[in-house]
Design a protein around this nucleic acid. Structure first.
Lengths: 223, 223
DNA sequence: CGAGGTTTGTCACCAGAGTTACAATTTCGA
DNA sequence: TCGAAATTGTAACTCTGGTGACAAACCTCG
């Protein structure tokens, strides 16, 4: 299956495009472009303003965002099917989200001007964009709520549960990255993970985590 | 000045409506409705699906969101001019954000069906909604990044700076609420606030904080 | 197959935030 | 005006999680 077909399939399944028929998907594929990136590459090359929609077709990217003090904070990892909408038109300033490939990846990029072209014929494209951004808002709020309300152990459980439900039970990421996203030290994460493994909630491997019992994780998160 | 006129003024100034002329603002005012709420009231009454846009015209509301374990987490406070977009169409589940008035407030509410009516004539309304939700996403990400990346003292400074810049230097909120939004104990917040006051960054009052030096706060946040 | 880098598992130490409790101050309503 | 409730300021104690350092297990590339 070509990458374009794969992208079409992912778009068809995506929640934020429900109610928009195949012509809209066709328009996104035609106006957007497929890009291939190696491990470690930034999803936006210099000069590319990276305004618009980005869909992960294959591979995985880490999502970083800027915090006070010039810090770049890792806050999540996205696999195939995850879409990101962003724009620089509001408030200017630095880019909101930076994407970095953690494995060779294929992305569908639909820049802002492409969306504008689509909107000329199908103004309802903006409704889809609003829906997409709303989904991201939901995710960001979940992360924020977890971070302020849950103690470390529960926070880790909640995040593992969330990632397992959205991206499948096989999480390919090392404990260092996981700790960074949660604002914990690697050691703390490691200790709790070992505890979860002993409790049979998951299995640890080299650079990956196999979640076995999301319900159990959620129980831990809610305790 | 009537509340409607005040709302029109706030909408005219809002970033997410830039590029849309007065007719769009007129449409929002006509299709939406002004509601008055007492202290402690929830912005959405039962049965009102509260899908659409809400603009704070007067007063102040606390923004809460759901975390694992049925916890309701306070994550911010909004004054006049702040708009919130939300919808329940995606993913169902519980309401994303709950608003609670901390003083008698006036809101402009534009429900989803009103937006749909507006879109019949002005489909670009969805672009404005996308922009609004994007602004919220930016805010939520900032909060999440702060929470995971900054230690308590810096986190407090960053949040005070953010609130002072968006809502003016006079913050009307007690230290308990502030601690809750940051995931800290009231005592910790109190101690750091006293330190900031000694450093001349702000002045503490009963139930309010007067920020004097946002640059100084940002310096603390970045240290 | 072997070297080098990466990732994971473990230790002792300690800074820093949470907890509990209480007094002082301010506000608001009766 | 007075009293109750809310808010702020302060103390001693506890304990979780961070730090730094290191060994073991694992991958990858030459």
């Amino acid at each position: 299956m070509s990458h374009r077909e794969r992208a079409a399939e992912l778009l068809t399944r995506s929640v934020w495009l429900q109610g928009h028929g195949p012509p809209m998907i066709e328009a996104l594929l035609t106006q957007g472009r497929i890009v291939h990136l190696p491990t470690g590459a930034w999803a936006q090359s210099e000069g590319d303003e990276q305004t618009g929609i980005t869909l992960v077709v294959e591979g995985a990217v880490q999502m970083m965002c800027a915090a006070p003090g010039g810090r770049e904070v890792l806050f999540g990892q996205a696999g195939p099917g995850v879409a990101l909408g962003q724009t620089l038109r509001f408030g200017g300033g630095p880019r909101l989200v930076t994407l970095i490939c953690v494995e060779p990846s294929v992305l569908l990029v639909v820049p802002d001007h492409a969306l504008t072209r689509i909107a000329a014929e199908r103004p309802e494209v903006w409704q889809a964009v609003a829906a997409l951004v709303y989904l991201q808002l939901r995710g960001a709020l979940m992360i924020a709520a977890e971070a302020v309300a849950l103690p470390p152990r529960q926070r880790l459980a909640a995040r593992l549960d969330m990632m397992a439900r959205t991206g499948g039970p096989s999480l390919r990421m090392n404990q260092q990255a996981l700790a960074e996203m949660l604002g914990l030290s690697r050691k703390t994460v490691n200790v709790y993970l070992l505890g979860f493994q002993r409790a049979g909630l998951l299995t640890l491997g080299y650079g990956q985590i196999e979640v076995c019992d999301t319900a159990g994780l959620r129980r831990v998160a809610e305790s």
